[in-house]
């Protein structure tokens, strides 16, 4: 479990750094994908390794932990990420058509 959590932490860190440092809009989106994947890894790991970290006193089905719900959450994350990417790409293309660049720093005309 620790290993998977560390992998997910690395993915999250890289994703955040990528979001913060990249200037290309598509690059930023790749950072977002990394962050979402970090979440998926956590979910599936939580689903596999069963009992939660909190000692559950109710010794019923609750004690099993997230179970398959974790896998399903990961499925939803994947699909939502795909939906988001579709819109994101459309917006980046629209921006590129208007501004001739996909540089996020070029998006600085709106200011007050």
């Amino acid at each position: 479990m620790t290993g998977y959590l560390i992998v997910s932490a690395v993915l999250l860190t890289c994703g955040v750094v990528c979001m913060a440092s990249k200037r290309n809009a598509v690059g930023v989106l790749m950072g977002v994908e990394l962050v979402l994947n970090a979440a998926s890894v956590n979910f599936v790991a939580a689903a596999e390794f069963g009992p939660p970290a909190v000692p559950v006193q109710v010794a019923t089905a609750d004690a099993i932990g997230v179970g398959l719900d974790g896998q399903i959450a990961a499925l939803f994350v994947i699909v939502l990420a795909a939906a988001e990417a579709a819109v994101a790409l459309a917006i980046v293309l629209a921006f590129f058509n208007q501004h001739g660049t996909a540089d996020v720093d070029a998006a600085s005309e709106l200011r007050g």
């Binding site: 959590l5 932490a9 860190t13 970290a53």
Partner: peptide, 19 residues
């Protein structure tokens, strides 16, 4: 960030009993 999250991850992994 990596240090903080890694720290959390190690602790959480240790706390989760399931092998």
């Amino acid at each position: 960030l990596a240090a903080a999250l890694g720290w959390t991850a190690v602790g959480l992994g240790r706390a989760i009993p399931g092998a």
